[in-house]
Design a protein around this nucleic acid. Structure first.
Lengths: 344, 344
DNA sequence: CTGAAAGCGCTAACAT
DNA sequence: ATGTTAGCGCTTTCAG
């Protein structure tokens, strides 16, 4: 089972090997392999044949060092266990396809310190651009990004000052938008359910926006409930039961994400609550999986895939003209009232 | 908005800059920055101070070229839109933490050709190891992997011949296991619902295992239903309605993944079907989100996170002793009967 | 413990 | 259209 490892000590093939195999200079071989136009069809063919038959794989490490051009884009997200981020990565990955750029992903676990550490690692590969979530970073991370001399795109959130480019939505506005819908529909006793994560700034801003929006209607949050780890769907149920036990008079529950919202909704349906008559519900994100639940949870679509695509395009576009810099893309989150908010 | 980009043309800092700033040779600066023990505390301090105040970030491209050691692990998965893979990536990312290795992810969209192309790109960075899903690859991809001279871990699936190491479960066995449970419980008219993906070999093997297992009980699939894109939860509902319309006499529905299974289950509950009395249900994967649905769908836990962790450990472990090679880890998928399979 | 020299494998910039 | 030369920024190796 270990036989094939006998090859392990064979030096990896170099341009020189290909060069010798086909009797063409290393430089010309290099040209062919980079698809440069100024090579005769005859030699091109010779080189390609030799390279293929040897199984030569170019060494980008050396290429990058020599050309001072690295075809990597550093991408950092807080988490992979929330579908939101894989969707963004999917968008980035798709948009980068065919550009010659490859994404390199890192996970920060919502920790600013870890973000700083991961960023340092990534920048040490001298990527052509950086995409990272949020506008909140440690001072050291900000400094690194400002001095890196490469396009930086902060994604997801537009509430704050960007280092370079931003692509996202205003979570504060999304919160207000929801407050508008809730208050406008006539709900008055509103409960908030969310995660216990001090470093989830976007969730925080949504809650602030919600609070502000309600205030304009002379309302305030009547109750709040927070949770830690575990199955978000189950937590949604449990939190809903808990908050309603403490405050049976609530007429609206706002969940800081669709997963707990869905759990809460399933719980309410089972209990036979009058949704949205006596109790309104709303989540956040517009996850695809809401399509298929017994009723449609009100939510705000956050355009995750598009955010990833636009961010990647900004990085890819920079390659050519260099110094565009400072693009700002604020997408409009779409409120979907679903079946859980109704005028009363 | 573009002011700070004036810095773009500043050359990035090099070891030499740090060296000059603190009056220590480049070589010694390099030693300090790599945490080597043979430097006096005094100079170490001097160097560190200088490096920090300048904001120096080492260039791993140059380091890797010089040392012939690349701290990257190439990771390739078929998709990011199925929670299964982000979970594996999470396991890999976590296990690699603190090893000095960083994962580089690539997405293949279940296409062997695309896998080959992505692999080529990744190998050109001369990573220290490769982790990829499945045992089915193009001949060219296999050749590249065999000749790369680095540890290769094929994950998720153990049914087939591995190139080097494997970490996964036998999907064929999982299929049989489910057949056992279904037939053993006394169900007789079984329908299969799955994806229309010729290149999803694991789903295919599960179906084969199921068919074989049923055959041993003198049973065969009474109906099948396949779907393309869209919300898997909704598709689960639609397929369930369709298959039951065509075959009202089915007494068991086996879904090839939990998402469509959950959709089907919600549909059945709404229709008031007697689950699991008249109709049994089962999904596949053991997704966390099943915890929180109205009833527990029977499923088989596929240990995704553990698969990621073990795979990463194999790569990380190779660093030291070199040529262990050919590790084979077959995890045991755990059948969870939930509330949707019952002896009859 | 510290330094000087010699590349790592490739490509930019010139020749030819 | 092709070849030659000189590095890219770091680390290995060998001297002090």
């Amino acid at each position: 089972m270990t036989q094939h490892r006998s090859q392990d000590h064979r030096r990896a093939l170099t341009l020189r090997d290909v060069s010798e195999a086909c009797g063409v200079s290393e430089m010309t071989v290099s040209r062919v392999l980079r698809n440069r136009a100024d090579v005769s069809p005859a030699t091109r063919e010779k080189v390609l044949t030799a390279a293929r038959s040897l199984g030569y794989v170019p060494n980008k490490i050396a290429g990058a060092l020599a050309s001072q051009q690295v075809s990597l884009v550093a991408v950092m997200v807080p988490s992979l266990s929330n579908m939101v981020f894989p969707e963004v990565l999917g968008g980035i990955s798709a948009a980068l396809e065919g550009t010659g750029l490859q994404p390199v992903f890192g996970v920060t676990n919502y920790s600013p310190e870890r973000e700083e550490a991961v960023l340092y690692e990534m920048l040490s590969w001298r990527p052509s651009g950086v995409i990272l979530a949020g506008l909140e970073h440690t001072p050291a991370a900000r400094a690194m990004l400002e001095n890196a001399g490469i396009p930086v795109v902060e994604i997801m959130d537009t509430d704050g000052e960007a280092i370079d480019s931003v692509v996202g939505i205003s979570h504060r506005t999304a919160g207000r938008q929801m407050a508008e819908a809730i208050a406008g529909a006539g709900y008055r006793r509103i409960g908030f359910l969310g995660t216990k994560m001090p470093d989830d700034h976007r969730a925080r801003k949504r809650m602030e926006g919600l609070t502000e929006g309600l205030a304009e209607h002379g309302l305030e949050l009547a109750a709040t409930e927070f949770y830690g780890g575990g199955s978000a769907l189950r937590k949604g149920r449990e939190m809903t039961e808990a908050i309603l036990a403490r405050h049976p008079d609530l007429d609206f529950l706002y969940y800081s994400n669709d997963m707990i919202g869905a759990g809460g909704m399933l719980y309410c349906l089972e209990k036979g609550f009058d949704i949205p008559g006596k109790l309104g519900l709303a989540g956040f994100n517009g996850l695809e999986f809401l399509d298929g639940l017994p009723i449609r949870l009100a939510t705000i679509d956050t355009c995750r895939r598009e955010i990833g695509e636009r961010a990647a395009q900004i990085i890819a576009g920079k390659g050519s003209d260099g110094l565009i810099g400072g693009v700002r893309v604020e997408l409009t989150p779409r409120l979907e009232r679903g079946d859980t908010i109704r005028e009363r």
